[in-house]
Write a protein that binds this DNA or RNA. Structure first.
Lengths: 265, 265
DNA sequence: GGCTGTCAAGAGCAGTGCTCTCAATTGTTG
DNA sequence: CAACAATTGAGAGCACTGCTCTTGACAGCC
């Protein structure tokens, strides 16, 4: 776990390869520390080299350039966030969709507050001149959203996702987009719930980003944990999730989810 | 409008002061261009000096350091965003609260897509080592949220803000925070609507940030305008706004807003 | 017209990413 | 075990950055 590159394929045979993998792991570890303390844009290969006790040019034997190190750190951060989210979600019973949704949200927020600079690298303004290679970053970068979709779609299939009080009409072009996603991921959710889910997704990160990036200002909202909990509750309702064993206003309404079959209209 | 520093106080008397103000305005203008093309972290005083046709050290006669130029650009961007939002909102009739809300959201998104780097400076990851001086940035930086609050509170006072289908309980510490804001701004909205309004606020910027920062990936959601319109509609409902002359599902329900007086419970 | 304040220029320091060459170390193989 | 070859680290160097300091020239003001 400390050396994420060491177990890349099988066990590395030659001592050279082992030493090389260890050095790369050290570089990533030091880069992660610099990232956490100084931010993404201030990440310096020379500083990493100094901490490694090596001259700057030597680092280029292991990492092609600064962008490649950024990519390694991006994957590293995405993976750690994904692990944190998975662990938090798995700790909640599978049938408790509302609880799993909130656990996901809390895990994202907790990780972001613990690692503000790395969160900024993932979800903040893009680093100028750096374009993440999607071949390496999409898989770890989509773990959280796929997990969220899995929770919502699982709830829908289990009849635990009721149509929210107000949805909005989904125009045709957007409906096509949603259909692509639905077929690619094998989802069952109809357009409205899927579109609301997308909003829930961005809203979670909007709330977390505001807190991590200091948009609230220094004074407003001292009880930010409570504020986030409130937001999670409202967002769960927006997604159509019903708290486990606590169906909305009228008891019994949750037993007949509106979308157990396609709407007649 | 082209020289934001020129009309700081009264008309500048001496030619020296006029020339100085003009130079500072030029520096801000060039800095804005560099910001737009290369991003915040890559903003270089030397590059600005080159474009200004002057040696690098000369810029320090007008701007104390890179951070002060960043502050000037921050205020500049906040003001332009605020102007764009104000113009868009004012173009909608005062009583059309739902229309004004959506105009605000659309204005934020349009400006952000037009000026991604400057949007990133305002709402993205903070620039490493730079702390915005709140004395200069809070006033322009709070224009949009104050405008949003004004729309929502105006709607509440006019009876056009109905309690959404689902709200969440507001715990005491958060309630205290909301009370501070309510008394400072002279708001009438109760806790639940205020808390939902905060979520609406962060959700708008979450959706815009995802789009501007490329979080959707290159393929997903081609109809992003429609997606955002959908989100605005759902968020308006979450805020409790009722479309003008189009009360929710049951006609007549909007005529008796739940919060015309404090809830009995 | 002369004084004074303001200004641009240039050199310089410390830092950055990155490339190249050279020497030494180290693992592998005959 | 010794020779070879691959790998590695060191160092110099280029072009860039923010920022400071000194010097000399210019222009406004009394």
């Amino acid at each position: 776990m400390d050396t994420p590159a060491a177990d890349a394929e099988t066990t590395l045979r030659t001592p050279r390869e082992r030493a090389r993998a260890q050095t790369i792991a050290d570089i990533v570890r030091l880069g992660r520390e610099h990232l956490a303390t100084h931010g993404a844009a201030a990440l310096s290969l020379r500083a990493v080299a100094r901490d490694l006790g090596v001259v700057s040019s030597a680092v280029y034997r292991y990492v092609a350039n600064r962008d490649e190190l950024l990519t390694l750190l991006l994957v590293d951060a995405y993976s750690e966030l994904g692990d944190a989210v998975d662990a938090a979600v798995n700790a909640v019973p599978e049938h408790d969709f509302d609880g799993r949704f909130k656990a996901l949200g809390r895990a994202v927020r907790a990780w972001a507050l613990r690692e503000p600079a790395r969160y900024g690298l993932l979800f903040g303004s893009p680093v100028p001149g750096y374009q993440a290679p999607s071949s390496q970053t999409t898989t770890p970068g989509t773990r959280v959203i796929y997990r969220l979709i899995g929770i919502l779609d699982g709830a829908y299939r289990a009849g635990a996702l009721t149509k929210p009080a107000r949805t909005a009409v989904v125009p045709s072009a957007l409906s096509d987009d949603l259909e692509v996603i639905r077929s690619e991921l094998g989802l069952a959710m109809p357009d409205e719930l899927q579109a609301n889910g997308a909003l829930v997704w961005t809203s979670i990160f909007g709330a977390v980003s505001f807190e991590v990036f200091g948009q609230y200002g220094p004074d407003a909202f001292r009880a930010r944990g409570e504020l986030f909990e409130h937001h999670l509750t409202v967002l769960a309702a927006m997604a159509g999730l019903v708290p486990d064993g606590n169906p909305r206003d009228a008891p019994g309404a949750a037993a007949t989810p509106l979308y157990s079959r396609p709407p007649a209209e």
